[in-house]
Amino acid sequence: MKKGILLVNLGSPESPEPKDVKKYLGEFLMDERVIDIPYIARAALVKGIILKTRPKASAAAYKKIWWEEGSPLIVLSERLQNKIQKQVEYPVALAMRYGSMTIKKGLQELVDKGVEEVLLFPLYPQFAMATTETITVLAEELRQEFFPSLKIESVPAFYNKADYIEVLSNSIKRHLEGKKYDHVLFSYHGVPERHIRKSDVTQSHCKIDKSCCVTPSKAHEYCYKHQCLEVTRLVGERLQFKKGAFSTSFQSRLGFDPWLQPYTDRTIERLGKNGVENMAIITPAFVSDCLETLEEIAMEGQEIFHEMGGKDFTTVPCLNDDDEFVALLSKWINTWAESKITA
């Protein structure tokens, strides 16, 4: 069977103009795995409130980080795709969960090239309902409706794979070399606490407290918080960060329900108030720099830190199209394809 790969990232508006941002936010926020409340309530919240106020502010944020080539996330994802394609002999397509670069188009592109078996590759190191799960569920729905003869296999979360931790750590080390930092903050995209409980396959383990994430359990396979904390721990150990000189936080909360804590903006504020003069911040929930890393962290985060008296604020780029990262993903893809051939 001819094999192909579909890389999938989050997505982006077509432009940083309010009308395009509104269209994108509407699709994103109406996803039942992003805002997981009943449809009528979700529609009332998104269409009745959020889309009447947020697009203008979000558009202004996008304009701050938009590149001449387009959306940074799209451009960086395309660079990653092109580099991987040079290292594997199988067709590599790129899709986005939201926006015009749809998963359906990506699958169709592969099918048009004769592909019969697809490796679906969500570009997220950690599992979450609002990232990995929404991609795999939609891909299966599309397969059943439009590509019934196509076989799809998904790449599971790779947050704790030794070779991934090595590549991530090497990238962080390179970017921090020669920099001053008293504290290293690992900032991950936030999710509502209820998402953690919903993803608990044991239906009893996840308490969102200080113990459940470090107590072995089957729940960890789908526990976003555990997987984030584990990345912080593994990288901290590999780079020999001093205890107390690095920590984890969560960004980008929405609404009034409890989200994973501590919050990134408040953590940056606290560190500045407590006398940390030089800090570095890493965003390992993303493999490609985007609005959340380039504007929310690198701009807003830095502003908060300086207001609190901090001096040097270093942001470590995502892996993007880092050559080591490209080589790692290509190795995983080739290993998958070869195992299928020899099976």
Rank of each mutant, 00 (worst) to 15 (best):
T232F: 02
L239M: 13
E153G: 00
P91A: 07
R197Y: 10
A343H: 10
G11P: 11
S187Q: 02
A298E: 15
R194W: 10
G310R: 14
T215Y: 03
M1F: 02
E269C: 03
P317F: 08
F325E: 03
Y164C: 04
E237M: 06
E78D: 15
V118E: 06
E69H: 07
F127W: 14
F313K: 08
C290E: 08
A60I: 10
A280D: 02
F246K: 00
H195G: 04
K218Y: 11
W332L: 09
N170E: 15
C318W: 03
P262S: 07
K22Y: 10
F305V: 09
T248W: 02
Y164W: 03
D112K: 12
K2F: 02
T53S: 14
E78Q: 15
M101F: 12
M96D: 06
G4Y: 10
K340G: 07
D112R: 10
T132L: 00
T215C: 07
G106V: 09
I282E: 06
E89P: 08
A130W: 04
P38N: 01
T53Y: 10
L254T: 00
A95M: 00
R54Q: 12
D289K: 12
P216M: 02
M101I: 13
I84P: 00
K311A: 13
D257S: 13
P192A: 11
L328Q: 01
P262R: 10
C318T: 12
R33A: 01
T335C: 10
G255A: 02
K19R: 14
I49W: 09
G301Y: 02
L234E: 13
T315R: 14
P16S: 12
K104L: 05
A57G: 09
A44F: 12
A61N: 15
E153S: 06
C212W: 03
Y39T: 12
S199H: 01
T232M: 01
L7I: 06
K47G: 14
C290F: 01
F127M: 05
K151S: 09
D163Y: 01
N160A: 14
I281H: 13
H183W: 08
E166F: 04
V34W: 04
K311W: 03
Q144I: 04
I304S: 11
H205E: 06
Q251S: 13
E296M: 01
W336E: 08
G99N: 11
